Computed example of a mutant assay.
Amino acid sequence: MQVTIYHNPECGTSRNTLALIRHAGIEPSVIEYLKTPPSRAALVKMIADAGLTVRQTIREKGTPYAELGLDKPEVTDAQLLDAMLGHPLLINRPFVVTPRGTRLCRPSELVLDILPADAFKGSFVKEDGERVLDDEGKRIA
Rank of each mutant, 00 (worst) to 15 (best):
R103I: 14
P28T: 12
P38S: 04
C105A: 15
V44R: 07
V97G: 09
I58N: 05
M84G: 12
L115N: 09
D118N: 14
A24P: 11
P116H: 09
P73S: 10
P107E: 07
Y65M: 05
A41G: 02
L90N: 11
L90K: 11
L81Q: 10
Q56C: 07
P99T: 14
H87E: 12
A66S: 07
S108V: 12
V75C: 06
A117H: 08
L70N: 01
L80E: 10
A50H: 02
V111W: 03
L115K: 11
K35H: 04
L34Y: 00
D82M: 08
D49T: 09
H87L: 01
A48D: 07
V75N: 03
V96N: 02
T57D: 04
P99S: 13
G69C: 03
P99V: 13
A41E: 12
D49K: 11
D118A: 14
H23T: 03
R59P: 01
A42K: 15
G69E: 03
I47Q: 03
K61F: 10
L80Y: 09
P107R: 04
T57L: 05
A48F: 01
G51Q: 04
V111G: 06
T57Y: 05
E67I: 02
K72M: 03
R55W: 11
E74H: 06
L80R: 13
L52K: 15
V30W: 00
V96D: 00
A78W: 10
A42N: 10
G69H: 00
Y33E: 00
E32T: 05
T98Y: 05
G25T: 04
P28S: 07
A24Y: 11
R103S: 06
I47C: 04
Q79A: 15
L68P: 00
S39K: 04
P64F: 01
A50P: 01
L81M: 15
L104W: 14
A78R: 10
I58M: 13
G51A: 03
G69R: 06
L110N: 13
A117Y: 05
A42H: 11
A50L: 02
A78T: 14
A83H: 12
K72E: 05
A83R: 14
V75W: 02
P64A: 06
A83G: 13
K45H: 14
C105G: 11
A50C: 03
Y65D: 05
Q79F: 11
G69T: 03
V96E: 02
C105R: 09
T53W: 06
P99F: 11
L52P: 07
V54K: 02
V54G: 08
T76R: 02
I47S: 02
D49Q: 15
G69M: 05
G101H: 11
E60N: 13
Q79N: 09
A119R: 09
L20R: 12
T53G: 09
